[in-house]
Every structure is written in C-alpha cells, then in structure tokens.
Design a protein around this nucleic acid. Structure first.
Lengths: 200, 200
DNA sequence: CCCTATATCTGATCGTCGATTAGATCAAGC
DNA sequence: GCTTGATCTAATCGACGATCAGATATAGGG
C-alpha cells in the first residue's frame, strides 16, 4: 500500500476548494490556475473538470462559500443585538471587518469576472439577502416611510459601507498626517452612513 | 501602390488604443486579447509589443486615458459652477453619469487587475486628484473643521458616490415596484451623501 | 467471492494566449 | 546610395482552459 500511490483522491472537490481558497487568500483570484491547483493536490490536469464544468464555476463555488460564511457572521450579529439601530451599525461594521480580513475573497465576491460584465444570478441572490437585512433594520428605526424611501435609504447606507470597504481594500484611503486609527475611521464612516440613512 | 499593401501602420499605438477602447466599451477588459487586437488592425501578433511592454501596460494606458477624460469633465464642471455646495453635488453626479456612460471603462479604472491585488501607482495619483477636488468643496462648505474631520467627510461622500456607481454598474439596484426613474435615484443618493458629509 | 455497473481519474491533445527573438522592411539623413 | 535606427514579420516557447478516449477504482447484486 505504501508502495503504490493511491489512485483517487478521497474528496477531490473539497480539496480543490480548500486549495483554491488558500491560493486566493494569498494571491487573489486572477492568477488562479485550475491546472496548477490540480497539480498541487496531486491529480491530473483534467481531473477537476469532473467536479466543476469550468474555471468560472470553480470560482463561483468559492464565492458562494464566501457569501455563506459572511451571512453566518451577519446572522450571529442579528442574534446577539437587540435594538435595530445597533444592529444596523454592527452589520455595517461586520462587513467592513470581513472585507478587511479576507480582502481577496471579497474581491472575488464583489469585483471579479463573476460580477462584471454581468453579475452572476446566484450571487445576485446573496446580495438581495444582505440588502434585505439592512433594509429591515432601517425600516424598524425609521418607521412610517414609503417603501421607496426605505429602499433609497438602504441604498445610501449600503453604498457608503460598500464603497468604503472597496477603497480600503485598494489602499486608497489617504488621510492627513496624524490620522486616527483605521478602526476608528471605519466606525466613523459607519456612523456617517447611518446619518445619511436615518436623518430627516 | 494599391497592389502592395503598406507594410507599416501609420500610428500603430494610436490604432491599438482606439481598437482597445472600442473593445472594452463593448465587452469589458477581461476578454481583451492583444493578439486579436493586432489582427484587427491588420498587424502581426508581436507588433504591439514594440509599443507596450505587456498586456498590463496596454490596459494601463487605456485606464489613464479614461481618467484624463473624466478629469476633463470634472474640470469643466468646476469652471461652470460657482457655489461649493453646488460643485460638490455636480461632481458627484458627474461621476455617476460617467460611470453609467462607460461602465466597462470604469471597471477597468477602478475594479480590475490594475487595482487589485495592488493598485497601480499611476492610477493612485489620479484618485488623489479626484479626492482632492471633492475635499476642496467640502472644506469650503463646512469651514472651521480639522483636517482629519474634512478627510473623514470627504471619504464618506466619495464612498457613497463610488459605492452607488459600483452597484449600479453591476445591476444590484433593487427598488420596489413603482420605483422612480434611475436618474432621480442618483440625485437622491448624491443628496444623501452630501447630507452625511456636511451635517453636524 | 466475483463480476458488473458506475463514478472517477489519467494522459494525450487541441486551440488560444502572452511574450520573446532573429531577421526582414521601411523611413530619414548624410 | 548607403547607413542608421525604428518598426514590423514570422516563428517559436511555455502555460493555460478545455475535451475525450480509455484506464482504474469503488460499490452493490449474484
């Protein structure tokens, strides 16, 4: 048994996803090669195609895992907070934190060939879930608004959070010398986003 | 003379950039192939490499052209408006309009291999210029703030504008049935962004 | 225990791409 | 007209995504 190498990998799909996740975390998704990944887990170049129809599908699976992981975090936040305003704030902060922890994964999820030129339908669904979570909190904090108005404010809030996280990832945040800590900046931005969503 | 095809292209660099711009506008930058482009303008596969060291540099040149074009629009707005608050609003709207007119070009400029994993240094410079333009208007509208505070508010404003344009490009804007026109949404978002940048 | 059905992987192959290089071709100045 | 320097051709390399026939392993029924 130790002489002959085992022919099959036990669970190739899982191993590929793990290797892919590790690669992306380290280098981003752009240079990810199915062939190299196959070689890395000790399998022939064609093997992955029995588990994923093409490279895009592989990346999509990784992105979906990322969304699930992120939504799990959101859920735990929703469970551990009580007041809607507090929830709104914590959800915003959580996204920024997640984006900071896994910047390359977020890139894949939000700014990759999976989202442009045309956003993948499956990913769109996850976006809706996240959007709705924010929407619910805003509707709770500021009741008696039309659906349109709530949509607008949700959009304003999410745009600010997403935009900030996106710029942060790219290292575009230029602050004056003597700047505050980045964590504080994130909190300040979230608070200002809430301002734009909840006032008047 | 009409029998023999001319050996050289007159200005290959310019022709390649034009063809590249056209391709990107139609299909996005992801599928852009230097070889295909060369063939399109009637030149051998290796010819482009006498004008651009590699594919990345070619895309970079296209992105820079895009930034210059966008800054020209900004400049004309800065010249044709008087009040800082008005300028701030118009600049925000202009970015959103530009992003809507050339979505794939904006993708290249802000969400491509040129910006992630590491943002190209030349592009960063353009970002600074745009950021400073916004910053100046905000500082004018709300004087007597610390540099830090102005930075923060500029960041809040720009995050919201950029985030909105980014979501819009990806078709993530989900509004309730009976939604207002998208242009109105853009204006509403810009106004809410100003709210978060200028209040309290 | 064997034998068959099915899932999985190998190994070779195709076409495309980015990039490099030697050599051909052109335009300009002496 | 000859030389110099820039520009392009044509051939080539290595890597990649994807496909496919055939080999190999696993599971279930006799």
């Amino acid at each position: 048994m130790p002489a002959k190498k085992p022919y099959h990998k036990e669970n190739l799909r899982r191993d590929l996803l793990e290797a892919g996740r590790a690669y992306i975390e380290a280098n981003g998704h752009l240079g990810l090669s199915i062939r190299t990944l196959a070689q890395q887990v000790g399998v022939s170049p064609g093997a992955p195609y029995h588990h994923f129809p093409d490279r895009r599908s592989f990346l999509l699976a990784l992105a979906i895992d990322g969304f699930k992981e992120m939504l799990a975090v959101s859920q735990s936040i929703a469970d551990s907070t009580t007041k809607p305003a507090e929830r709104l704030r914590e959800l915003g902060l959580a996204f920024i934190r997640f984006a900071e922890t896994y910047p390359h994964l977020i890139d894949l999820m939000y700014e990759s060939e999976l989202t442009s030129p045309t956003l993948d339908e499956e990913l769109l669904e996850f976006q809706r879930v996240g959007h709705d979570a924010l929407r619910r909190q805003i509707a709770a904090v500021v009741p008696d608004l039309s659906d349109q108005e709530i949509d607008l404010r949700t959009l304003a809030y999410w745009s600010a959070i997403y935009g900030f996280a996106s710029m942060r990832r790219k290292g575009i945040i230029h602050t004056s010398p003597g700047a505050v800590a980045t964590v504080d900046i994130a909190e300040a931005i979230v608070d200002r986003a809430a301002l734009s969503a909840l006032t008047s």
